[in-house]
Computed example of a mutant assay.
Amino acid sequence: MLKELQEKGIIKCEQYNEMPIRVEYSLTKEGRSLLPVMDAMSDWVAKHSPKDLYTGRHFDKVHADDFK
């Protein structure tokens, strides 16, 4: 899957000449353009999940009105 994302230009891979070998993956500009879409999907999941089940980073934003 990582290789496919790399081929599509969504992520980039940087390998370091260290022992043990270290590899870092990061989003490209194209990949970062997907963040609003991923945030919207995460918000939807938080909104449609039981409050006692979901604990993602969007939980407080989506359920803020429930705790007033």
Rank of each mutant, 00 (worst) to 15 (best):
G56L: 03
F59L: 11
D43L: 01
L53A: 14
E14Q: 14
V62Q: 02
E18S: 15
L35V: 07
H58W: 05
D43A: 08
D52P: 02
A64M: 13
P36I: 01
L2S: 11
L34R: 06
L34I: 01
K8G: 05
A46I: 00
Q15Y: 02
L27I: 00
G9M: 00
S49H: 07
D65W: 11
Q6R: 13
E30W: 03
K51Y: 11
K12L: 06
R57W: 07
W44V: 06
F59A: 10
A40R: 07
K29Y: 04
Y25I: 02
R32N: 11
S26P: 02
Y54T: 03
G9W: 04
D39K: 07
H58N: 15
L5A: 09
P50F: 06
E7P: 02
Q15E: 15
L53M: 12
K12I: 00
I10M: 05
I21N: 10
S33H: 07
H63R: 12
I10S: 04
D60W: 05
F59M: 09
R57A: 06
P36Q: 08
P50R: 11
E18L: 11
N17M: 07
K47M: 07
Y16M: 06
R32H: 09
K61S: 10
D66G: 08
S49T: 07
Y16F: 14
H58E: 13
K61E: 15
D65N: 10
L27T: 00
Y54H: 04
P20F: 00
Y16C: 01
R32W: 08
H48I: 01
M19A: 12
M38N: 03
H58D: 09
M1W: 11
I11W: 04
K51S: 15
K3P: 00
Y54R: 01
V37S: 10
Y16N: 06
K51P: 05
K3E: 15
L2A: 09
K12G: 02
S33L: 06
R22S: 11
D43M: 04
K68N: 10
E30Q: 14
G31I: 00
H48E: 08
L35N: 04
D66A: 14
E24I: 07
K29N: 12
H48S: 09
D39I: 13
N17H: 12
R22C: 05
W44L: 12
E14T: 15
T55C: 09
S49C: 08
D52I: 05
P20N: 06
I10F: 03
K12T: 04
H63Q: 12
A46D: 04
E18Q: 12
M38A: 14
K51Q: 11
E14P: 03
Y16P: 00
H63P: 00
D66C: 01
H48G: 01
R32A: 13
V45Y: 01
R22D: 13
K8C: 03
D43Q: 05
K68S: 09
F67D: 12
K12P: 00
D66V: 01
S33P: 00
R22L: 08
K61I: 10
E7D: 15
K12S: 13
S49N: 06
F67T: 08
